[in-house]
Amino acid sequence: MSGYTLKLDNFGQVQKEDDLSFIGGQPRIPENLDIPSCSLCGSEQTFFFQIAFPEGHSWQEFSMAVFQCTNCANEEELIPEMLDVPLKGADIPKEFLKDYQRHFRILVFRTSAAIKPRQDYQEKIMFKRWVFETTTKKDEMNKVGGQPLWLIEDEAPATYNGEISMTFLMQLGEGFEFELTENAPPQMRIGLRGDPEPSPNRYYELFLANQLYFFGTTEMTDPMVYVVTQI
C-alpha cells in the first residue's frame, strides 16, 4: 500500500468547497449524517480533522472525519478505550468499535457523498489544509498508508469479530496542537486535583496529544475504525 507524508499547507488557510483533507474549519460530511454529540454530557462534539484517503490506499474513495468532545472531561474517557488483551494480533469483539465511541466519534463515508462543508457547524479549530507528499522515508510521524512507526511496540490488531481483517490507515504524531479560532471556548481537561477545569491553552489536544494510530476494517459495507494511542 502506498504511503504518504501528511503536511500542513500553512499558506492555504481559507476553506474552499472542494477541500477534502484538512484540520479544523467546517467538516465536509454528507448531509444525512448528524454532527456527533457527546454521550457523557450531550454537547455537540468538536470537529478535529478529516482525511480523504488517496489513490493506492486500501480505503481509497472513502473519507474519515474525527470528532471529540471538548466541553467535558472524564478521566476514563481521555483516550479511546483499549482492549483488555495484548493488542498485537488481537481480535476486536463485535460491537466494541461502536460502543467505545462515547466521548469521541469517527465518521466514515464515501468521499463522493459529501458535497460541501457543513454550514450548520460552528468552527472552533482554525482551518488548515492537509497536503499529501509521496515519501520513502520510514521515520515520518504524520502519514497516511504505508507502515506504522511505533513509539514503543507493535500494537496492531489483526481482526474484527473474528473474521474481518484490520488494516493500517494513518498515524498522527504526538504533541499535535489544533489551533483555536478567536471565539472558541477552552478545552476542558482534568486538573491537578483530579477535577475538570478549562485549559489555559489556545489549542485543543486530540486524545491527550498522544501518538495516534488509526486502523480500519477491510470490509467496507460497514467500515469501522480502531484507535491505538502511545506515549
Rank of each mutant, 00 (worst) to 15 (best):
I51S: 12
K138I: 09
T111I: 01
K143D: 01
E75C: 05
I92H: 01
R110M: 04
T136M: 08
E81R: 12
Q147S: 13
R118W: 09
S199V: 10
P186E: 13
D120Y: 05
T46A: 13
L172M: 14
W150E: 08
P36L: 11
V108M: 14
K124G: 05
T135N: 05
E197K: 10
I231E: 10
L151F: 04
S165W: 02
Q50H: 04
E182V: 13
E133Y: 01
K137N: 13
E95F: 14
L212T: 10
E75F: 06
I23A: 03
R118M: 12
E197V: 11
N183I: 08
T134N: 08
E81N: 06
P148W: 11
K128I: 09
G146K: 00
K124H: 08
E205V: 10
S58G: 09
D154I: 00
Q187E: 14
L149C: 03
Q119M: 06
S21H: 02
A114G: 02
T167N: 00
M64L: 15
Q101K: 14
L87Q: 14
Q15I: 10
Q60M: 12
W130H: 14
D34V: 00
E155M: 10
D9T: 06
P93S: 09
Q68K: 14
L172T: 11
D139V: 00
T70Q: 12
Q119P: 02
R105Y: 07
D195V: 12
F214K: 02
P54T: 13
P223C: 08
N32G: 00
E123T: 11
Q122F: 10
R28P: 04
G191H: 03
T217I: 12
P185G: 04
A114M: 02
G24S: 06
I106L: 08
R28D: 08
D84S: 14
S2N: 04
P196M: 14
K143I: 00
Q101W: 01
L206Q: 11
W150Y: 02
P80I: 02
G3M: 00
A65G: 09
L206S: 11
A65L: 11
K7Y: 03
P196G: 12
L20Y: 02
K124T: 07
E76V: 07
N142W: 04
P93N: 14
D34S: 14
D91T: 13
D139H: 07
A90L: 10
M170V: 01
K16L: 14
V225M: 08
P80L: 13
M220N: 05
P223G: 11
I231H: 07
A90Y: 02
D9I: 06
S58D: 01
R189N: 07
N71T: 13
T181E: 15
G3I: 03
L192C: 05
C38S: 07
A65Y: 04
G146M: 08
M166W: 03
F168G: 01
V131S: 10
A113P: 00
W59C: 03
E205K: 15
F67K: 12
D195F: 13
G56T: 04
C69K: 08
L212H: 03
A52H: 05
F127Q: 06
